[in-house]
């Protein structure tokens, strides 16, 4: 088998170049999606028959919650690749995902509170879904602070990488928490095996906001990775050329 593509993919120089080409497109597409998503979500979709207009919080809440778990999984996979094959770019990806994933987790929790307050009559309950999502936030923050605690960046990569890999068990716990335990939180609406039980105008708003938020977060991760590459590879001649000297 030819492994050349793998080496090329793991080259910081190649990633820096390809991400520079991709980023303007990602920003552009995500803003178009966001504009349509906001219009559809805040104005052009119907209110819920039980929850009224508060259902519009869903278009921020569910995409950020999905993103928080998806990016954590990606961070753990990146950390594992970096750990096993000693690929620097994978560690750079892991540390770049962390702050964006933490922000998504924070948003899922806050918008959940803002939705729970009028609908459940409480900002917070210590049930399985909410608690496991809070643990996810602590895992992200723990990863960031553990990484920054090491003077030697490569040692920090490996130590924090272990934390990321161990913490990934929390992701399926969050996902299945609404089935495994009694909870105030409602079950899945989209990822059920039957047809999603949602008005088409809601589904459209949700899909637009989901792709917009995931694409914006992905672009932010890429942007953060480019900073990380410049910082770590500063002695390479191609970086000197890119910076312009």
């Amino acid at each position: 088998m030819n492994w050349q593509w793998f080496h090329r993919l793991s080259s910081p120089k190649w990633f820096y170049q390809i991400s520079g080409t991709l980023l303007p497109w990602m920003w552009g597409i995500s803003f178009v999606l966001l504009a349509f998503g906001l219009y559809q979500g805040l104005y052009n979709s119907v209110a819920d028959y039980q929850q009224g207009n508060t259902v519009r919080i869903m278009y921020v809440h569910v995409p950020t919650a999905i993103g928080s778990m998806m990016f954590y999984t990606m961070m753990a996979v990146a950390a594992a690749i970096g750990y096993i094959w000693r690929i620097k770019l994978a560690h750079m990806a892991a540390i770049s995902i962390a702050p964006i994933g933490a922000a998504l987790t924070f948003l899922a929790l806050v918008t959940g509170s803002l939705w729970g307050s009028p609908m459940w009559g409480t900002w917070w309950v210590w049930d399985a879904r909410l608690t496991s999502e809070l643990i996810l936030l602590f895992l992200y923050l723990g990863f960031i602070s553990l990484h920054s605690a090491f003077e030697d960046r490569e040692l920090g990569d490996r130590a924090a990488g272990v934390l990321a890999m161990v913490g990934v068990v929390n992701v399926p716990i969050i996902h299945y928490s609404v089935q495994w335990w009694n909870t105030l939180h409602q079950g899945a609406t989209i990822s059920k095996f039957e047809k999603p039980s949602m008005d088409p105008s809601m589904l459209l708003a949700f899909m637009l906001m989901l792709f917009a938020i995931l694409l914006i977060s992905g672009a932010l991760v890429m942007y953060r990775m480019r900073n990380e590459i410049l910082s770590r590879e500063h002695s390479k001649s191609w970086v000197k050329e890119v910076i312009g000297l």
């Binding site: 906001l38 805040l42 209110a47 009224g52 207009n53 508060t54 519009r56 919080i57 921020v60 809440h61 950020t64 948003l107 806050v110 918008t111 803002l114 939705w115 307050s117 009028p118």
Partner: peptide
């Protein structure tokens, strides 16, 4: 429908 503060603050914080 009376839920404005909850909805708008969700979007603004995000």
């Amino acid at each position: 429908g009376g839920y404005g503060p909850y909805i708008w603050s969700s979007y603004l914080i995000a």
